[in-house]
C-alpha cells in the first residue's frame, strides 16, 4: 500500500493549525492522565473516523500511524 498519496489533499491542515492540534492534544493527554490516555486516543480516532466519513481514508491513516510500530506492519520496515 502506498502511504503518501501524491494527489493534492485539499483537506490537510496548514502547519500552524497542525501545531495548534498538537498543542491541544498534548493538553488533552495530560488531562486524561497515563491511565486513560490510550482510551482517549482510541475514542479520538473513532470520532475522527466517524466524522471523516471516508473509510478508505481512515484505513490509510491507520496504516500510516501503525507503520514502523510493529513487525509485519504495512511495509514491514519495523
Amino acid at each position: 500500500m502506498k502511504l503518501d498519496d501524491p494527489r493534492p489533499q485539499p483537506s490537510t491542515l496548514p502547519f500552524d493549525e497542525l501545531e495548534r492540534a498538537y498543542e491541544a492534544l498534548a493538553l488533552a493527554l495530560d488531562a486524561a492522565g497515563p491511565g486513560r490516555e490510550s482510551l482517549l486516543l482510541t475514542r479520538l480516532a473513532l470520532v475522527l473516523a466517524h466524522r471523516g466519513g471516508d473509510l478508505a481514508a481512515f484505513e490509510q491513516a491507520l496504516a500510516v500511524a501503525l507503520d514502523g510500530l510493529v513487525e509485519g506492519s504495512v511495509d514491514g520496515s519495523a
Binding site: 498534548a26 488533552a28 493527554l29 488531562a31
Partner: peptide, 8 residues
C-alpha cells in the same frame, strides 16, 4: 514538560 507533550 509532561507526558502528554512527550508523547506528542
Amino acid at each position: 514538560p509532561s507526558r502528554g507533550w512527550r508523547l506528542m
